[in-house]
């Protein structure tokens, strides 16, 4: 048999195993991709998630200062119970919607998710204050502010998530490595 034919017929038997892992390890460090750029791109896409946490923490801070103020605030809320009912129902409804989105897809960290819960630390603090000072208008209006803020944030999160999802669907279908290689 001619050498050319022999090699052609046994081509795969001539192949050795691939290179060791150190080649990729070295290559990875030299990839023409800037890690920093990726972080910035990611932040640009998810800026609003970072903003939520800032807003939540700031809101809790504002409420605390609000409560500590000695000045009387003349806010009259006649239908406190009805108001509470109105907000809690809507908040619970939004939270349910949010929980249907997989955590990974939503990309919110656990601190932010905890802050978004209806009965979180800020809520319990307000509740305690309210129980100790029934009829205190300041605490009541703080509670309302708390509800309003939470509802606005939840709306914003769901809006942004839907908007981003629609964009992603119209642009391109993500390529699954397992499917193509």
């Amino acid at each position: 048999m001619k050498l050319e034919d022999f090699i052609q017929q046994n081509r795969s038997a001539f192949e050795e195993e691939g290179p060791g892992p150190k080649v990729w390890a070295a290559l990875e460090k030299e990839l023409p991709v800037k890690q920093k750029t990726r972080v910035i791109t990611m932040m640009a896409r998810h800026w609003w998630k970072a903003a939520i946490l800032v807003a939540l923490v700031a809101n809790a801070g504002i409420l605390l200062t609000f409560l500590q103020t000695k000045k009387e605030v003349a806010v009259v809320i006649p239908e406190m119970q009805e108001m509470e009912q109105f907000y809690t129902t809507r908040i619970e409804q939004k939270l349910d919607e949010l929980k249907q989105i997989p955590a990974a897809e939503l990309g919110l960290d656990s601190t932010t998710r905890n802050e978004l819960e209806l009965r979180n630390e800020t809520y319990r603090m307000l509740e305690k204050e309210l129980a100790g000072n029934p009829g205190n208008e300041r605490i009541r209006s703080a509670m309302i502010r708390y509800y309003q803020m939470k509802l606005e944030l939840l709306d914003k999160i769901l809006d942004e998530h839907n908007k981003y999802n629609n964009d992603a669907n119209t642009n391109s279908t993500p390529l699954n490595k397992k499917d193509v290689l």
Binding site: E16, G18, P19, V23, W24, T37
Partner: peptide, 24 residues
Amino acid sequence: VRCRKGDVRAYRELYEAYSKAMYN
């Protein structure tokens, strides 16, 4: 296309696909 966009995973896939033959 994905490599040009800076997708690190795409570089890895490219390497995985060719490294054995090229190493040989």
